[in-house]
Write a protein that binds this DNA or RNA. Structure first.
Lengths: 229, 229
DNA sequence: AGATAATTGAACCCGCGGGTTAAAAATGTA
DNA sequence: TACATTTTTAACCCGCGGGTTCAATTATCT
């Protein structure tokens, strides 16, 4: 209402400046971590100055937390684009895993921020109470698939939605997070297009296997070698 | 020979001092990363002084690299305790995964150092040419299992040893590395004894499923619910 | 216009922490 | 004993970088 009219007329646009700072800060913190990032390096990448960073974000740690929250919101928001309504439970699960795998791949900065949070024992993430709702929704998606799968007689009754989510996260996350050390140690071949397709396919097969009541359907649902399908 | 006679007589014992420094430095670097660690904090934990750290290790980065190499050697060394000779390939694979899962669990400092290396795009690990041999041996173990599995007609012919190693690493690594954020977001229940047993069991099942030629053996080899076995 | 509040710039402060200097002990050799 | 080498201590240096001061500018309201 009033504030919006204001900002339209203003040349100085605080929201835009803040967004600019957040954008650059996200890249820097993702690259170098909390202690490794220099505020001056952030300032250098923005259209504004070091002074303004402190003006809008108090101190380094608050800026870091703002970045984390901002990035988390954006990425978790992007997840809601996925629509699994009406799919067969096994197909839905497959779609969810493939989507998550690709989505993590497309958001390496988010992955790096989570890695950094883990180094900090999730200290800053614990403050972000707004996350609770988003997390419950993420589990809710898996939960609904599980329930539908059980009701359709396709899935085992004893699977834990949280454990299933853990499995999906593990492969999708590791694939991005540990690329540097893994390819240093064991070569880059898993990270070209063919390698990624292989890993994704294998992950789908593995996870479906741990969920299906009748594993003999596995080869029909997801052949290990798609060229034979 | 001579140096050993020396060190026996000496009160001052350089090797012991260096080892002491490395021990404390490993803990600190694992806790706080390269830029986050203060040399004085390391010194405070040793029986010696800050000056001696620079005396023996030149500068902070060299110390960090020495810690990384030391830790890597120790952990990869611990892996050689596993003896899979004479086991059936499917049993051997299962044993390898269970061992790796537990071994990573017992070495959180190593995991954290690898996380930190990934943040640094593996810059320091790339200098450690001594690792190549150890890495090849790790892949060699998986390779032999694959080969034996194929020859026994148990495994698919198209599986890549490196990809299989990736799968084993992914679950074992993620399980330790992302404990903080995962349990912050989704609760701690996967990380008590029962939860860990569940994850390990599920991982075994998933990975075997992606390798076995005849998936119908899966339930016999690794029931999803062991209480039914 | 003039009062008031929001935004910005330039220069500054200061303590933390990586790294050094210099010289004293400890050990070894002849 | 004299002398060289290695190990250790205590005190110091100094620049980097997080955070501040203060005044100038810009915009808003009446």
């Amino acid at each position: 209402m009033e504030t919006r009219e204001k900002s339209r007329k203003w040349k100085q646009n605080p929201e835009a400046v803040k967004a600019d700072i957040l954008r650059v800060a996200r890249a820097e913190f993702a690259r170098s971590g909390l202690s490794g990032t220099r505020i001056e390096d952030i300032a250098a990448g923005t259209k504004t100055s070091k002074r303004m960073i402190f003006y809008y974000f108090q101190d380094k740690q608050s800026l870091y937390e703002a970045v984390l929250e901002d990035c988390y919101a954006e990425v978790r928001g992007g997840e809601s684009e996925l629509d699994l309504e009406g799919l067969r439970p096994d197909v839905a699960l497959r779609a969810l895993l493939e989507f998550t795998f690709d989505h993590h791949s497309r958001n390496p900065e988010f992955i790096r921020l989570v890695m950094i949070e883990n180094i900090h024992e999730a200290r800053h993430m614990q403050k972000m109470h707004a996350l609770a709702a988003k997390n419950e929704r993420a589990i809710g998606v898996v939960e609904r698939i599980c329930k539908a799968g059980c009701e359709a007689g396709l899935f085992r009754e004893d699977i834990s939605p949280v454990a299933l989510h853990w499995q999906i996260s593990a492969v999708s996350f590791f694939n991005v997070a540990n690329r540097a050390t893994f390819s240093t140690n064991f070569g880059p071949e898993l990270f070209d297009e063919a390698g990624q397709a292989l890993l994704r396919r294998t992950a789908v097969r593995g996870i479906l296997a741990s969920v299906l009541k009748d594993v003999s359907q596995l080869d029909a649902l997801c052949p290990a070698d798609p060229s034979l399908a």
